[in-house]
Computed example of a mutant assay.
Amino acid sequence: MNVHEAISKHSNAQHLHLVRFSELDAQREQAIDEAVDLCKRGLPFTVDTINAITAHIIAHAKEGISPLRSYVTKDMVHDYVNKG
């Protein structure tokens, strides 16, 4: 494999890694929006889905260049809703 092919392969792998991160991050944001909506309406909610996706993001980040995301607590959701 020549240098050009190696660079192209590496660049493509990074691109695919970031595409997957974007997909996971969008799923996480949707789960956060759902928890916030339930909290605003005074309904019970969990952060389990958010944190399951966060765990996938953290594992995915270990394989490439994508950023990390923090786990979310119910208190964090309550604080966000109460500030808004």
Rank of each mutant, 00 (worst) to 15 (best):
M1H: 12
M1N: 12
M1A: 14
N2I: 10
V3R: 13
H4V: 11
E5F: 14
A6E: 12
I7P: 04
S8R: 10
S8T: 07
S8V: 06
K9A: 08
K9D: 05
K9M: 05
H10C: 13
H10D: 14
H10G: 08
H10S: 14
S11M: 14
S11I: 11
N12A: 10
N12Q: 14
N12P: 01
H17Y: 11
H17K: 10
H17G: 06
H17T: 08
L18C: 10
V19Q: 13
R20C: 09
R20M: 13
F21A: 00
F21D: 00
S22T: 14
E23P: 07
E23A: 15
L24E: 02
L24I: 06
L24P: 00
D25V: 06
A26C: 11
A26D: 10
R28G: 02
R28I: 01
I32C: 04
D33C: 02
E34H: 07
A35R: 02
A35I: 04
V36R: 02
D37W: 11
L38A: 13
C39W: 03
C39K: 04
C39S: 07
R41D: 04
G42L: 06
G42H: 08
G42N: 06
L43C: 06
P44V: 05
P44A: 04
T46L: 10
V47N: 03
D48M: 12
T49Q: 11
I50Q: 03
I50M: 05
I50H: 00
I50C: 07
A52M: 15
A52D: 13
I53A: 01
A55I: 14
A55P: 09
I57V: 06
I58V: 11
I58G: 03
A59N: 11
A59C: 11
H60A: 03
A61P: 01
A61V: 03
G64N: 03
G64H: 01
G64I: 00
S66A: 09
S66D: 05
P67A: 03
P67H: 04
L68T: 04
R69A: 00
S70Q: 04
V72H: 00
V72F: 00
T73V: 05
M76D: 10
V77G: 06
V77D: 05
D79A: 13
Y80G: 05
V81S: 02
N82K: 15
G84S: 15
G84N: 12
G84L: 11
